[in-house]
């Protein structure tokens, strides 16, 4: 076996299938995408090279691209600073109640995560519907008629409503990760802290949170990636509207490539999308790595 791993040809031979898959599934499509991003191709017919014109237009004259990016950052912030703490607190609560009750609550909270995106989106689109939706009916019954608005088409509530749907579906995953993480914290550490006179906030902030750091960082990285690549939920609910207020990059590049027949432009958007996504992910991971080293 040692001889096999000492043989460079054998190593190359063993690594080749994995590398080939990576090249054909990742590098080649990105390469093609980059090539078409330098053209004015409509998706069919002849095309002309346009150099970096598409990139220049996106970065200097396309407010929708920046709006999409800002929306992704807002979603990211809401996920990290609201969804995660709530999920963590609830997971901590579930970790301290009876196993049977915990199991029931975990199942309930995880239901949205196992439902299809189409089902969830249609469910919430119907709940938010101003004509027959249950939300406005309840608000009117409660005497809050002024709050009964058209949630998904009102410029003031559309983004919030869409983010709510996304958060609602993703909550179960965050809860599950945190609950599983909390279950791995050795009881002896907690007991030792209590013996040493630590209060429960001290136990959580000084002992459990640092112990959970790898789990928290993994959940946040997943949240960052998920915020950037939002597509189906937006496409099925608002399609980026009203105007472009709820637009996200993945939906926008699809619209440009296949609705507006600006395939070259859409590919330029996708390349920038890759750059932004990789950039932010690397940044977040570095942040956590240096934080982890300090810890």
């Amino acid at each position: 076996m040692n001889r096999l791993f000492g043989n460079r040809t054998a190593i190359a031979f063993l690594v080749l299938p994995g590398v080939a898959i990576m090249v054909f599934a990742l590098i080649v499509p990105i390469g093609f995408s980059f090539y078409f991003s330098l053209t004015d191709w409509a998706g069919f017919g002849a095309f002309n090279p346009v150099g970096a014109a598409n990139y220049k237009e996106i970065l200097t004259a396309d407010p929708v691209f920046w709006r999409s990016l800002v929306n992704a950052l807002i979603l990211m912030a809401v996920t990290i600073f609201i969804q995660n703490p709530v999920a963590f607190a609830l997971a901590a609560l579930l970790a301290h109640i009876s196993q049977k009750a915990s199991q029931i609550f975990r199942s309930i909270f995880f239901v949205p995560a196992v439902l299809s995106v189409v089902v969830i989106t249609k469910l919430w689109v119907n709940i938010f519907n101003p004509t027959y939706g249950i939300l406005n009916k309840l608000l009117r019954l409660a005497g809050l008629k002024s709050l009964a608005v058209s949630w998904l088409s009102n410029p003031h509530t559309a983004l919030g409503s869409v983010i709510w749907i996304i958060i609602w579906q993703g909550f179960g995953w965050a809860l599950l990760f945190y609950y599983t993480g909390l279950m791995t914290v050795p009881k002896e550490i907690e007991e030792a802290a209590v013996v040493d006179g630590a209060s429960w906030p001290q136990t959580y902030t000084r002992i459990i949170l640092p112990y959970m750091f790898p789990v928290i960082s993994s959940v946040i990285v997943i949240d960052v990636i998920s915020s950037l690549k939002q597509m189906e939920m937006i496409y099925l609910s608002t399609d980026g509207g009203p105007g472009q207020l709820t637009q996200f990059i993945a939906v926008y590049l699809y619209q440009k490539a296949f609705v507006a027949s600006q395939y070259g432009y859409g590919n330029a958007l996708s390349i920038l999308f890759v750059v932004v996504a990789v950039g932010i992910t690397v940044l977040v991971q570095r942040l956590f790595r240096s934080e982890g080293e300090i810890q």
Binding site: A42, V64, P155, G241, L245, S261, Q262
Partner: peptide, 20 residues
């Protein structure tokens, strides 16, 4: 062009949402 159609529709969406 298809791009004019897309621009036209996007502008109409903004107009009829009261955004512009």
């Amino acid at each position: 062009t298809p791009q004019f159609k897309d621009d036209n529709q996007n502008a109409i969406r903004e107009l009829c949402s009261g955004l512009i």
